[in-house]
Amino acid sequence: MAITKQYSMFLVLFFYFTTISISTPVLAQLSVGFYATTCPSVFDTVRTATLSAINTEARMGASLIRLFFHDCFVNGCDGGILLVDTPAVPGEQTVFPNAGSLRGYDVIDNIKTQVDTACGGPVVSCADILAIAARDSLVALGGPSYSIPVGRRDAIAPNRAGANNELPLAGEPLNVLLDKFRRKGFTTAEELVALSGAHTVGQAQCAVYRDRIHNDANIDPAYAASLRPNCPSTSSPATDGNLAPLDPQTPTRFDNNYFNAVINRRTVLRSDQALFNGSGGPTDSIVIGYSNNPTTFSCDFANAMVKMGNLSPLTGTQGEIRRDCKRIN
């Protein structure tokens, strides 16, 4: 059975990459072997550094996956999220969807230092390092592996307006989520639901889910009650940052239990529960399918991650290869 699953994954990714290379010329400039001569150890270096970071702090794997999503969903995977604010150019890190919640910047900086040392200089972009680290985090947490075409270059400016307006938010309804994903080229509801499955790992802050557990009707009452002592109804600096897992069953393991939580209304984010209403909603059947078939979920998730990694990359002479991920050269 294990061999069959791996072979199925290979076929899905093979046809996906073939379609990309034929239909999208700019993506032909990305390839798995892009650094084969200039930095052949890049994948090993990033993997070792990523695993070290996760071993130091278990939450970091989920944080790096989320950081990758928030980079790619705005202006394509260009490392724009890594740029810090300057007096002249405010960046993406401090906009509402990112401020106080995105993590892992220091880990990417550390990996960049190690990669540049291994390569003899700034050869690999920060955007590629983040893409590889997200994949390695996924694998470390028990998720599927996939090949990553590389060769992205780094943005020379952030897109603060895009970060403010284009990222999906935790309280948005299904129709808004579907529209935001379609605008990025995710044309099927399966892609939205599959990528939402990344919430099988990670946690949310009380300030984000407080209103849901105290006021929403479409949440399991016993589950909501269990969360309230750690997240009282009144906002307070002492409790706003208190965490609750996005997947209450296996919060540190990448699997399909997240979809069981959605079906059972044991979710802390409204955007997660929006995927399933139990009354034949547009994505109900997809959620049920993924809850019953972890192999299908893993394949669809891997394909969607590859697609997201190929959103509007900077290639060739576009952008730059940053020496410091936090700042333009």
Rank of each mutant, 00 (worst) to 15 (best):
R47Y: 01
R47S: 14
G171P: 01
L27N: 14
D220Q: 05
A238L: 13
R182G: 06
S137D: 09
A198Y: 05
A274G: 11
T200H: 06
A204Q: 09
G91P: 06
F96H: 04
C299T: 10
S147Y: 11
A225P: 08
I288M: 12
V150F: 09
E320F: 07
G280S: 01
F69Y: 15
S63F: 03
F69I: 12
L243E: 09
A62N: 09
V262N: 00
P221L: 12
K180C: 02
L27R: 12
G142D: 13
V201K: 05
T234C: 03
Q93F: 00
Y35V: 00
E166N: 12
I148E: 03
S233V: 15
F301I: 02
C126L: 05
T267N: 08
Y146Q: 01
A49V: 03
R160I: 00
L51W: 15
G120V: 08
T56Y: 13
H199V: 00
A58P: 02
K5S: 12
D85R: 12
N293W: 10
C119V: 04
Y290H: 05
K180S: 03
C119H: 03
N242E: 10
F15N: 13
F186K: 06
D116M: 07
P237M: 04
A224R: 09
E320P: 00
F181N: 01
V42M: 10
F69A: 14
L51P: 01
S8K: 12
Q29E: 15
Q273I: 07
A170G: 08
A133F: 11
T295R: 14
G281H: 09
E190C: 06
R210V: 08
A155R: 11
R135Y: 07
L275G: 11
K307F: 10
V42D: 08
G104V: 04
R183K: 15
P245A: 14
A140S: 15
E320G: 00
T283C: 05
D116F: 07
D154F: 00
A274S: 15
E191K: 03
Y258W: 12
P122N: 11
D71W: 07
A88W: 03
P237Y: 04
N257E: 14
N98W: 12
V306L: 14
A198T: 15
I54N: 10
G142P: 09
T295W: 09
D116C: 08
E191V: 03
D179Y: 08
G76T: 11
T283M: 07
T45E: 13
A58R: 14
V26L: 08
Y35N: 01
P25T: 07
M308D: 02
V150C: 07
V268H: 06
L178H: 02
A238E: 13
V26M: 04
D85L: 07
F17L: 14
G319S: 08
S145M: 05
I328M: 05
L314T: 04
T18H: 01
I111T: 08
